[in-house]
Design a binder for these strands. Structure first.
Length: 419
DNA sequence: TCTGGGGTCCTAGGACCC
DNA sequence: TCTGGGGTCCTAGGACCC
C-alpha cells in the first residue's frame, strides 16, 4: 500500500551507445546487429519510423537499408556493459533502493520522496548530462504499473520523458491507450488465450478476478492482474541474487558437420562460461550441452539434443568443465547432420568459497562407500550439522536411506580430503 | 525393517523477459 | 552463403532408486 516505484529505461540503449561514440550518427537511423550480423537487435527512433522491426534479417533487407541510409553497426557488448554500469551508478545517487533489472533498465524505490515526479526529472537530466544516455522514467505504485508509466513516457511527446501515474484515474487513462500485448508479462501466446475469454485489452485484464485468472492460467498471471490493480506482488530486489545458471551459446556462420569442429567451438564456449562463473565467485557441479541443426532450414534433417553431465566434485576449473562438456557432446553428437548452433549451460551454481567441492552421492558410483565413510568421520569430528547426509541417515528409519543415497549434498571438499 | 509407492533426476518443452 | 544470446520459472512423463 502506498508504495512508489519508478522504472528507468534507457532509450534504444544499444543504438544510443553507438551514437555516444560516433556523434555523426545523431539524427540518423541506426540499427545494431546480432552475432554474425544476423538480425536487428536494436533500433534508433529514426530506424523504427522506417518500419524496421526487431529480428529483421540483415541479409534480406540490406539493399533497403542502404537505400534509406541506415547506419548499421555490429554489436559490442563490452561497450554496452560499461555504459550500463555508468548509468546505474548515477541512479544509485538518487535512491538507496535500486534494483538493476537488465542491462538497460532499473527499478527504483521512491518511498518517502515528497515529489517523485520532480525527483525523476532531476534524475533524468543527471543521467543525460553525466553519461550521454537518454532515459525515460515511469512512476507508479507497483512494478507492473511503473512499466505502464514508462511506456507512456516514451510514447507521449509532451511527457518530457517522465510519466507519473499515482492514482486509478491516471492509470486507467494510460492503460486505455495500450494493447494487451504491451503489458509486462503478456506475451505472444497469452494474449490470444486471454482474448478468447473476452479479455481483449489491458483495462479488462486489470478488472478481471485474480482468483479466476489463477484458476484458468497460473500464479504468474494472477500477480500481473493484482499489480495492475495496484497491489504490489513483486518486491524490489536490491541485492541481485547469484545467477542460477550461466549459458554460452553461439550460432555458427555456416553449417558445421564434423565432431572436431563442434568440439573446438564448445571448448571455447565452456572456457568463456567458466570465466563468467569465476568472476561471480561461483562453482558448478552440473553442465548441460546443447546441440542443434538450423531450424530455419526445413529442407535439412532436423536434430536437437541436450545432455546433462553431472560432476562428482563441484568445480570452477576450466579444464575439468571442458572435459565434462566434451563428454556430453560425444553423447549426443550424430554424424550426418548440419549443425547450426551449440552451447553450454552451467547449472546448480553455488558460491565457490563455501564449497571447494560438491559431493554427489550416487548409488552407481564406486567411490560412494569411501565418501560415506569419510562423511561419517567428518560427522563424528564436527557434529551433525556439518554433514547433512549423516543427520538424515542416523535419525530416520530405513525409508530415508533412499534419500541420502540419491540426493545431492554439498560439503567442504577440502575438509573431506583430510579425513 | 521393504516388492510398490514415493522421491528424485533427466529430458523436453512452453511461456515469459531483456 | 545469410534469421541473436542470455536468462527465469513452470510442467510433465519416464527412468530409476530403494
Amino acid at each position: 500500500m502506498g508504495g512508489t516505484v519508478a522504472l528507468v529505461d534507457c532509450n534504444n540503449f544499444y543504438a544510443s551507445c553507438e551514437r555516444l561514440f560516433q556523434p555523426r550518427l545523431q539524427g540518423k537511423p541506426v540499427v545494431v546487429l546480432s552475432n554474425n550480423d544476423g538480425c536487428v537487435i536494436a533500433r534508433s527512433n529514426e530506424a523504427k519510423a522506417l518500419g524496421i522491426v526487431m529480428g529483421d534479417a540483415w541479409h534480406l533487407r540490406r539493399a533497403e537499408f542502404e537505400r534509406w541510409g541506415v547506419q548499421v553497426r555490429s554489436s559490442n557488448y563490452t561497450l554496452y556493459g560499461d555504459l550500463s554500469a555508468r548509468v546505474m551508478r548515477v541512479l544509485g545517487d538518487f535512491t538507496p533502493d535500486l534494483e538493476v533489472y537488465s542491462i538497460d533498465e532499473a527499478f527504483l524505490g521512491l518511498d518517502g520522496f515528497a515529489d517523485p515526479e520532480n525527483h525523476a526529472r532531476a534524475l533524468r537530466e543527471s543521467v543525460g548530462r553525466r553519461t550521454g544516455i537518454p532515459v525515460c522514467v515511469g512512476i507508479s505504485t507497483t512494478k507492473t504499473l511503473a512499466k505502464v508509466a514508462n511506456r507512456t513516457a516514451k510514447k507521449d511527446p509532451y511527457s518530457g520523458g517522465v510519466c507519473y501515474l499515482p492514482d486509478e484515474a491516471s492509470q486507467t487513462a494510460a492503460l486505455g491507450k495500450m494493447e494487451l500485448g504491451d503489458v509486462w508479462g503478456i506475451g505472444r501466446r497469452l494474449a490470444p488465450r486471454l482474448a478468447a475469454l473476452g479479455i481483449t485489452c489491458p483495462l479488462k485484464l486489470r478488472d478481471a478476478d485474480p482468483t479466476r485468472i489463477r484458476e484458468r492460467f497460473n500464479v504468474v498471471l494472477q500477480r500481473t492482474v493484482m499489480e495492475l490493480q495496484g497491489t504490489p506482488c513483486l518486491d524490489l530486489e536490491q541485492d541481485s541474487p547469484d545467477s542460477k545458471t550461466i549459458c554460452c551459446s553461439r550460432s555458427f556462420g555456416r553449417a558445421v558437420e564434423g565432431f572436431d569442429e563442434l568440439a573446438e567451438a564448445l571448448t571455447a564456449y565452456t572456457s568463456y562460461a567458466a570465466q563468467k562463473m569465476r568472476a561471480q565467485g561461483l562453482a558448478t557441479a552440473a553442465v548441460v550441452v546443447m546441440l542443434t541443426t538450423n531450424r530455419h532450414k526445413p529442407e535439412d534433417a532436423q536434430y536437437y539434443a541436450t545432455r546433462h553431465v553431472r560432476l562428482t566434485i563441484g568445480t570452477s576449473d576450466t579444464a575439468r568443465l571442458i572435459r565434462a562438456a566434451l563428454w556430453g557432446l560425444r553423447g549426443i553428437y550424430k554424424q550426418g547432420f548440419r549443425y547450426k548452433k551449440c552451447g553450454i549451460l552451467l547449472l546448480d551454481l553455488h558460491p565457490a568459497q563455501d564449497v571447494q567441492g560438491s559431493l554427489f552421492l550416487r548409488p552407481d558410483r564406486p567411490e560412494r562407500s569411501a565418501l560415506m565413510q569419510a562423511m561419517d568421520a567428518l560427522n563424528a569430528r564436527y557434529g551433525r550439522d556439518r554433514v547433512r547426509y549423516a543427520c538424515s541417515g542416523q535419525d530416520r528409519p530405513w525409508k530415508l536411506r533412499a534419500e541420502y543415497l540419491s540426493q545431492r549434498y554439498t560439503t567442504r571438499w577440502g575438509e573431506l580430503l583430510h579425513v
